[in-house]
Design a protein around this nucleic acid. Structure first.
Length: 674
DNA sequence: CTCACCTTAAACAATA
DNA sequence: GTATTGTTTAAGGTGA
């Protein structure tokens, strides 16, 4: 205590400088307005998902053309074997522009929003959710990718065992490489586009981030559409097949002789190749025993249906499936072409996976989120910008260094671990900048704090609540609904990393608020004095502000609009990959589940506010969760209290969504009081 | 512009 | 005497 106060007083001067009110308010004001306008602007992009979808369609079209173009080109150029993936004359320039547009949306929106640097917990929640969704996406993609690989390998080996020349496979692989080259080209073009965006200031890419420029990699096609493409190719094949079989019916097959290297590389590139090879050692052609043994695990057979891409023929049993496989999917041009397309699908998925991984990493990097231990984490580069705060390094939260949004941050600590454990400590924030939305928008403080508990504990984010609200929350969380001043202090420091520094300032504010507001009642105790909350008094000041105020509702909506574009982007991102929208419940991580529920709550809250004015004063699930009558009141309430809107209190009941857990390191509150 | 609210700062007194 | 607690005033910012 003595120590603390010592540092307090000592640090007071500089602390005040750092957190000088004038500058703070300026910043706050700026960020607030920016945020709001941004939110509104973003609200206009609600259709981003649709737009992205349309663009995806366009991109698919272009991709088809691209494919054919490539085929023709290869036909023309004869045996030119595309070995190098890095350099290739650009031939489909406009294509990639079309293809990249959809993906740019998401990170761009994110960046724009993130540029404010003042992230409301909800925003962060959405971002975290997005990250989690991406992880799930990747998992699904990986599974899908595995399956495709298995199919592919099976087909290849089937052909091999059929005794046909390896030339076909070489062709396949060569084609695959060609396609890959094109994808790489598109990547490059996208990177160029990204860079141009960066130059225009549309994107803030921090120089220290190697991952970010790779962020929007080629991602034109989504698996379903690739499947569609597959079908198209297949049907085209079939059509031509009927007409004449001598000529290779598909352009794909006619080209590319070249060396055998490509086929190898194509196999090498796939980590599953070996296992798949093992798996498919058994020739489908021969109805061997081994096949029967593996009948249950045959990648091309499941649920009584042939899983050959585009087939879906019903096979009663495995035997009939084998017959079907040998008859319908024998080694011919069509199967070869299908196999090629399948390879492309796999390649595309691979790229997609890589892209999403990088995107995820870039997102997290941009958010300065580290999954590593906060304590060992090296300070960002820009820590020099705030030498004055270095004294706080000894305090619990080392990351107390504000930085400007434009400042390049940090040695990028690669986010290797799963993002589920997101330690946001590094999102040191802008200490003084704040945004009080919850008080005004009636976002329940209890749920906000509960759901963002870890966030507030680790990140030096100023909670968007007034001191009065926080104090009240602290008191209401206590078992006895009463706290000493010191216990209130402790609650602040325990719950919020932000309040682990500049103690003199905010402690003074706490005391000031306790004394100033009538809603805080000081109760003499045996051991001293405790503070309680007069809920009626506390609620009294709210109605005038909130109830039915259309502008407030508008604010509520605009604040809600923060989520909308992000959700749209999330959905767009999922739509990109034809991955169904995850229910938040499916997210295993409880923290993210909380975050998701927070989002839901916010949405619901917004709806409530737009729908009913009555619930404003005690909105939803009672914003001020526990409207417990104060246990003890020594002094009679002010006469005006009698005329207070008592109805406000009626709806409230104690919802123990944030139960007094425990770790009150402070001595328990004295129970007997005067 | 006004008003209410909020934050920060600071002076001061009472008390442990 | 010092630190803590509590009260009060003032100044400045924000948003309706």
């Amino acid at each position: 205590m003595m120590q603390e106060s010592g540092t307090e007083t000592k640090s007071n001067g500089s602390a005040i400088q750092n957190g000088s009110s004038g500058g703070n308010h300026l910043l706050e004001c700026g960020s607030l307005r920016e945020g709001r306008s941004n939110g509104e602007a973003a609200a206009g992009d609600v259709g981003a998902a649709d737009l992205a979808h349309v663009q995806q369609q366009q991109a698919l079209q272009v991709a088809r053309q691209l494919l054919l173009q490539q085929q023709q080109q290869q036909q023309v150029s004869g045996l030119k074997s595309p070995k190098r993936n890095d350099k290739q004359p650009a031939l489909q320039v406009p294509v990639s522009v079309a293809m990249m547009t959809p993906q740019v949306i998401t990170p761009q929106q994110m960046q724009q929003i993130l540029q404010q640097q003042v992230l409301s917990p909800q925003q962060l929640q959405v971002l975290l959710q997005q990250q989690q969704a991406l992880m799930l996406q990747q998992q699904q993609l990986q599974e899908f990718y595995k399956k495709q690989q298995e199919q592919l390998q099976l087909q290849l080996l089937q052909q091999q065992h059929a005794g046909k020349q390896p030339k076909e496979q070489q062709q396949v692989a060569t084609q695959q490489l060609a396609f890959q080259q094109q994808l790489l080209q598109m990547q490059q073009l996208q990177q160029q586009h990204l860079l141009s965006l960066q130059r225009q200031g549309l994107l803030t890419i921090q120089p220290g981030q190697p991952a970010l420029p790779l962020q929007p990699l080629a991602q034109g096609m989504i698996p379903t559409e690739l499947q569609q493409l597959w079908k198209e190719v297949t049907s085209a094949h079939t059509a031509e097949e009927t007409t004449g079989n001598n000529h290779s019916s598909l352009d794909l097959t006619t080209t590319c002789v070249s060396s055998s290297a490509p086929s190898k590389t194509s196999l090498i590139m796939n980590p599953h190749a070996s296992t798949n090879g093992q798996l498919s050692v058994h020739t489908p052609k021969r109805e061997s025993l081994s096949h029967e043994e593996h009948s249950h695990s045959h990648p091309l057979y499941g649920h009584g249906v042939c899983k050959w891409p585009g087939c879906e023929a019903v096979c009663e049993d495995f035997q009939s499936f084998l017959k079907h496989l040998n008859s319908e999917h024998a080694l011919d041009d069509r199967s070869t072409a299908q196999c090629r397309v399948q390879m492309q699908v796999v390649q595309q998925l691979e790229l997609q996976l890589a892209k999403d991984k990088e995107r995820l990493q870039a997102m997290m990097t941009h958010l300065h989120v580290k999954s590593t231990e906060p304590k060992a984490a090296p300070q960002p580069l820009n820590l020099v910008s705030s030498v004055t705060l270095s004294k706080s390094a000894s305090e619990a939260s080392p990351q107390s260094l504000p930085h400007t949004p434009t400042t390049p941050t940090a040695p990028i600590t690669p986010v290797t671990q799963g993002p589920s454990v997101i330690t946001t400590t590094s999102m040191h924030t802008v200490g003084p900048i704040r945004r009080r939305y919850s008080d005004k928008y009636n976002v329940p403080i209890s749920s906000d704090i509960a759901q963002n508990q870890e966030f507030y504990k680790n990140a030096e984010v100023r909670p968007p609540f007034t001191y009065a609200s926080l104090i009240r929350q602290a008191i209401l969380e206590s078992p006895e609904k009463q706290l000493t001043l010191n216990e209130i202090y402790n609650w602040f420091t325990r719950m919020f990393a932000y309040f682990r520094r500049n103690a003199a300032t905010w402690k003074n504010a706490v005391r000031h608020n306790l004394s100033l507001h009538k809603c805080f009642v000081r109760v003499e105790n045996v051991k001293g004095a405790v503070w309680t909350v007069d809920e009626v008094e506390f609620q009294k000041r709210r109605p005038q502000k909130i109830s039915g105020n259309p502008s407030l509702i508008k604010n509520m909506q605009s604040s809600h609009a923060y989520c909308t574009p992000l959700n749209a982007a999330l959905q767009a991102s999922m739509a990109e990959n034809s991955i169904p929208l995850y229910t938040t419940a499916s997210m295993g991580n409880p923290t993210l589940g909380n975050l998701a529920s927070a989002i839901r709550e916010e949405l619901n809250g917004a709806m409530e506010h737009t729908n009913s004015n009555e619930s404003d004063s005690s909105p939803g699930r009672s914003p001020m969760q526990a409207v417990h009558p104060v246990h003890v009141k020594e002094e009679p309430l002010d006469p005006e209290e009698a005329e207070g809107p008592l109805s406000l209190v009626t709806t409230a009941n104690h919802s123990p969504d944030f139960d007094h857990d425990r770790d009150y390191e402070d001595e328990p509150v004295n129970e007997d009081m005067e």
